[in-house]
C-alpha cells in the first residue's frame, strides 16, 4: 500500500461520502439530486481507474500498439451515465411537481405541511 498507488481510491471514496453527506444532511431536494449525481460520478472513477495501465492506450485496436487499458469498465459506465441522466430528469420532474403541490422544495417545510394537513382533518 502506498500513497501514489491508492490515491485514486481515496479521492473516489471522498467524492462518494461527500455525495452521501449531501443526500442525508441537506433538506433541499435539488441539492439532494446534485449530491446523488456526485455519488454516481464517484462510481465512474471507482470502475475506470483500476482499468488504466500506465503506458497503455485507449482500447482501439491498431497494429502500432500492444498495451491497452481495460475496455470492459468503460462499457459498463457508458450505460451508467445514460441511465444516470434519465433518473436525474425524472427526479427533477418530481421535484417540480412537489413544488407545485407544496409551494416548497425544502424537506422540512414539506413535512411540516404534511403533518399540519393531518391534524386539520
Amino acid at each position: 500500500m502506498s500513497l501514489a498507488g491508492h490515491y485514486t481510491y481515496w479521492v473516489t471514496i471522498f467524492l462518494m461520502i461527500a455525495g452521501l453527506y449531501i443526500v442525508i444532511a441537506r433538506g433541499n431536494l435539488v441539492k439532494k439530486l446534485i449530491g446523488l449525481g456526485i455519488f454516481q460520478t464517484s462510481v465512474y472513477l471507482l470502475y475506470i481507474a483500476p482499468g488504466k495501465l500506465i503506458g497503455g492506450t485507449a482500447p482501439i485496436l491498431a497494429a502500432t500498439f500492444n498495451t491497452y487499458s481495460n475496455p470492459l469498465p468503460h462499457v459498463l459506465i457508458l450505460t451508467a451515465i445514460v441511465v444516470g441522466v434519465a433518473t436525474l430528469a425524472l427526479g427533477l420532474a418530481i421535484v417540480v411537481r412537489i413544488r407545485e403541490a407544496y409551494d416548497s422544495i425544502e424537506e422540512d417545510e414539506i413535512l411540516d405541511k404534511d403533518s399540519a394537513g393531518d391534524e386539520g382533518q
Partner: peptide
C-alpha cells in the same frame, strides 16, 4: 487521462 475516451465524450 485514464484512457476512457468514449466515456469522457459521453460525460
Amino acid at each position: 487521462a485514464l484512457d476512457a475516451v468514449d466515456v469522457a465524450m459521453t460525460e
